[in-house]
Nucleic acid binder design. Structure first.
Lengths: 227, 227
DNA sequence: ACAAAAGTGTTCTAACTACACCCATGA
DNA sequence: TCATGGGTGTAGTTAGAACACTTTTGT
């Protein structure tokens, strides 16, 4: 870090881009923004913003979530920093990507300034994205698949109360593989990370499943499950 | 990424900092650089350099390794990006940290321009570091501990040929826990990642251990070991 | 012959896999 | 009563943990 006068060089711009995961109708989805300006005008992209000189990455994430998407207080984790020199046609822009997990109770994308330009897309049918955002999304999906095995991700993606079959489908959806119902149930229950509420979810024309909650007395940092 | 004229703002500087891991005398070590300039003059820090407008992170890593340390062609992996606004007293500097693994066959730190100011420090007795580099090193060590379980890290840190007790001690050192010799041997051999050369390492005043190599016919991406 | 470290096998236990039947509900 | 999906248990197999003695070498 020597031999360079501190302010004498121009520096790349820094963007923070967000992969916001949600889970609806048994599908894993992400939030995309329809660009109104060049480059990639009319193309879907990850929501993002430039980093101000005094800002932290998380502050930019909050700014994007609040002003553009009308969401607050999510699970946020840094994913990776992208540095391809040509990734933005306007010039050198680095992207620090974060991913977020939204609980359906906590979002209301119609509240953001850009509500009309924001849409959930199922991971199964993503459009062609601008910039290198397809790469970013792929990496985020891989990270989520790894993460679900050692962090109780369901807590962030499901309602406060949920049924075991719902949690089971969430795991099958994210991992993309079938998982034996009975073994899954045993492993999750043995882990102690969820507890029955005693309620049952009514309405369906079949046996009413038990309703569970995540066990708040237990450290999420120690969670592990082997599928 | 809207609403901002592209060149009208000043941007933070970007540093790339390197945690270079080596393994010598049964100790995990990292390379540190003694700073000759403020800030933190006289303090040990991670080797680093500023990102030029046209450079990629890996190019900066190569530049640091070649010019400062006289090393080339290492295993390199992006660790994390650090954004604390006050992490550099000179002003806003982001740090994109990478970590590297050096095989003792491949390094010669006396060849770099700054050979006199570069030194290996055991992870057991690190000095107080400048900037937020202690945090970076801790995170790198955690990443390495995780990585050793699903990537044959020994391949990067040991000589081309090595004995099983050497590999065993490497795992114990990095993970910081004792590992049963016999179970370790069985698991590593069953994984197929190493093969006997038929040679034995002579010299010691006890039974001569067999010499192994990593199996180059096998995909390092599929390696896993449960300790 | 002795000290020092390397090589080797077995038993026990825990965890995972595979698998099929009964139960509760609303239509 | 029937269709749908939820709840439950067991037997077989595999993988990991714990553990001690024998072998080779140089002094």
């Amino acid at each position: 870090m020597e031999k360079r006068s501190f302010t004498s060089y121009r520096n790349p711009a820094i963007a923070v881009d967000l992969v916001v995961f949600g889970y609806h109708s048994e599908q894993l989805s992400i939030l995309l923004l329809n660009r109104k300006e060049a480059p990639f005008k009319g193309r879907w992209t990850l929501p993002g913003a430039f980093l101000g000189l005094e800002e932290t990455f998380r502050q930019v994430c909050q700014r994007i979530l609040e002003t553009k998407l009308g969401i607050a207080d999510l699970y946020l984790e840094q994913l990776y920093s992208f540095d391809q020199p040509n990734r933005d046609p306007r010039g050198r822009v680095l992207s620090v990507a974060y991913f977020a997990l939204v609980n359906p109770d906590h979002y209301d994308i119609t509240a953001g300034e850009m509500a009309n330009d924001v849409k959930w897309f199922s991971m199964e049918e993503l459009p062609r994205l601008g910039f290198d955002h397809t790469t970013i999304v792929q990496m985020a999906a891989e990270r989520l698949r790894a993460k679900i095995l050692y962090h109780p991700v369901g807590f962030e993606l499901l309602h406060h109360e949920f049924t075991l079959p719902e949690l089971h489908r969430l795991y099958e959806t994210i991992l993309g593989i079938p998982i034996d119902r009975r073994n899954f149930r045993r492993k999750i229950l043995d882990s102690g990370y969820i507890v029955m509420t005693g309620e049952k979810k009514t309405g369906a024309q079949h046996r009413h499943p038990d309703i569970y909650q995540f066990n708040s007395n237990i450290d999420p940092g120690n969670f592990t499950i082997n599928i």
